[in-house]
Design a protein around this nucleic acid. Structure first.
Lengths: 338, 338
DNA sequence: CGGTAAATCGAAAACGTTTTCGATTTATTT
DNA sequence: AAATAAATCGAAAACGTTTTCGATTTACCG
């Protein structure tokens, strides 16, 4: 591997001058600059990033912690982050917390000890304690949370308004004439499940439809099978239900599949709205009306904010936390009688 | 940030001894070892990885280049790689080539200049020239290719036998009585499309079914819409087709969706087999018979091989290239009349 | 041509670690 | 107690870069 020293020796000048020539310092003549440039590219010189990192105290690398990689929404976020990072010359180290608080903590430590320039994180469902996050902030390493966040932690965030989105979805069900609307909700953590539930409830109340707790089903693993199971359960419990707002598309698809099997017509007998706009939502039949969750944009935005914080910290500007709420919209398809 | 120097000063001993005490060197007494350990953890010492990298010339980081992150198969591979890498103390920098040869080349350069310890890559569809890969090998940076590989390049590889898998799928169609079997094939690159086509063709020939080129449709973007389009086309061109082997699940799902729409019964009138076993294959109706492509395992295996090469190179052992072919199996579902 | 200003260069320190090898201390043996 | 062996320590170089600041050279002006 060729170093500055070798170029210097080749030309009989000092390492200093070589270094400066390669990075537009004003105190090196055009002649030697050109010379250095030429021999550098001739020898195929590549700066040793280990040395650069040590010297400049930054690695142009950020860490990313995601609960689950194999997931349409999250992989879209990853793509957004990576694409934006690459534009700014940053690389992304990705880790998966597997929805485990313990792993998440270890991974934060790992990233800090690798001295990444910043961290992007979407919290694991099980995470209820945030000391590992606040420690990052105290260490002055920029961090921004996205999607699954901790409201109480003071740092930048990029989210959607789950409550509002759920409200709009439920409102749509009401607008098209539903009177008895069920909800398949997610677990008690993360916050998103709660917010979607609250949006659902609020929409009912605001439209003078009585809120009936027995119409709300608490799911655990949010799987296709669970969708089928609770769809079946719902049919047993409440014959009069004419609409459901479901926490996530996969479950909604399970439910629709069960309805199809049982001969219940969607949307004629039951209107179904999902959440996320997974790719397959457009592909099943009937296609699924759902809330579009802009993963790619969320990733881009999250990186942009992190980038700004990294730059500000470098300039010793006092950083101000940013909280961005991305717009969601309802995608109208065939599972609702629009 | 606390350094070895600070610990040394704190205890009035040399940096050398501190360093040695922290890494099980035999020439430091148990007493001082204990002392150093204690103050290190008290001061929350974390070795500066930039310095460690510079000194040891390795970063415990590998690079990963993937054509497309938002993709069930590839995200499974990523997950496999990251999970395995973490076990061995390696971090993974992920880049997306977007199926572009030019980007792929740049990203290889980027990773090399970051001095990753090794590279994992699945080639972009457009990549027909492999100089950027052979350069990596010449630079003595371990590299292993997976899934979309270059057969002519001498390095370790992890793949499935696309040809065999396609053969088995087609054979199944024949076994259940299909006489006129169509094929929706992928573009001329990557090699995988070719191999799947060849497996299809071979199965026909081996079973004394004449190969009819007009039953093979060449797709471009492998999308849901294309699946619908060519399913429609097929119905117009060939009324007698009773089975299709389709290059990838998404297209197969498009085709089934079109058949459903047109009132063509699957599998009664047409048997359909896909490829990949995407998650949604089990979710549509009828559920899709398909070839299971073990992404997670592929990721794990690819990292394991890379890891071995990294270790071997460090020990200056002469490395031998490894070519692993993972088993695939046919998942029998409702789109074929089994 | 002398003197000043501007342009150009390089020595050296610093980043924080690892590791070699020689020095010193302690323990063991005769 | 002297000699030897074993245990313990530390100085210093090295990894390759960046950057400060002083030194040297060149250009410019009167």
């Amino acid at each position: 591997m060729v170093t500055l020293k070798q170029i210097a020796e080749e030309l009989g000048i000092s390492i200093t001058t070589v270094s400066k020539a390669l990075k537009e310092y004003p105190d090196v003549s055009k002649k030697t600059r050109k010379l250095v440039r030429e021999t550098a590219s001739m020898l195929n010189y590549k700066p040793n990033s280990f040395a650069v990192n040590l010297r400049t105290k930054e690695s142009k690398t950020i860490g990313l912690i995601i609960p689950e990689i194999v997931h349409h929404f999250f992989s879209s976020v990853i793509k957004g982050i990576i694409s934006q990072a690459e534009k700014k010359g940053y690389l992304v180290i990705t880790l998966q917390s597997n929805e485990s608080y313990e792993l998440e903590k270890k991974q934060i430590d790992l990233l800090l000890s690798k001295r990444v320039d910043g961290i992007l994180i979407s919290l694991a469902n099980g995470t209820g304690d945030f000391k590992h996050i606040t420690e990052v902030i105290e260490q002055e390493t920029p961090i921004v949370m996205f999607d699954k966040i901790a409201k109480t932690v003071k740092c930048s965030k990029v989210i959607i308004d789950d409550r509002k989105a759920a409200y709009k979805a439920t409102q749509h069900l009401i607008n098209i004439g539903c009177k008895r609307i069920a909800h398949f909700r997610g677990p008690l953590l993360p916050q998103n499940s709660i917010d979607r539930f609250l949006g659902y409830k609020q929409a009912l109340i605001d439209n003078n439809l009585s809120y009936d707790a027995s119409l709300v089903y608490l799911l655990n693993d949010m799987s296709f099978e669970e969708g089928k199971f609770y769809a079946n359960q719902l049919l047993k419990d409440h014959k009069d239900v004419d609409g459901i707002f479901i926490n996530t598309d996969l479950v909604a698809i399970g439910a629709i599949s069960e309805f199809n099997k049982k001969g219940i017509k969607v949307p004629e007998q039951i209107n179904v709205i999902g959440f996320s706009n997974w790719f397959m939502a457009s592909v099943i039949s009937p296609s699924l009306t759902t809330v579009n969750q802009p993963g790619f944009q969320m990733g881009k935005k999250a990186f942009k904010i992190l980038y700004k914080e990294i730059k500000d910290r470098k300039k010793r500007k006092n950083i101000s936390y940013n909280e961005v709420i991305l717009e969601t919209d309802l995608i109208f398809r065939d599972s609702t009688n629009n």
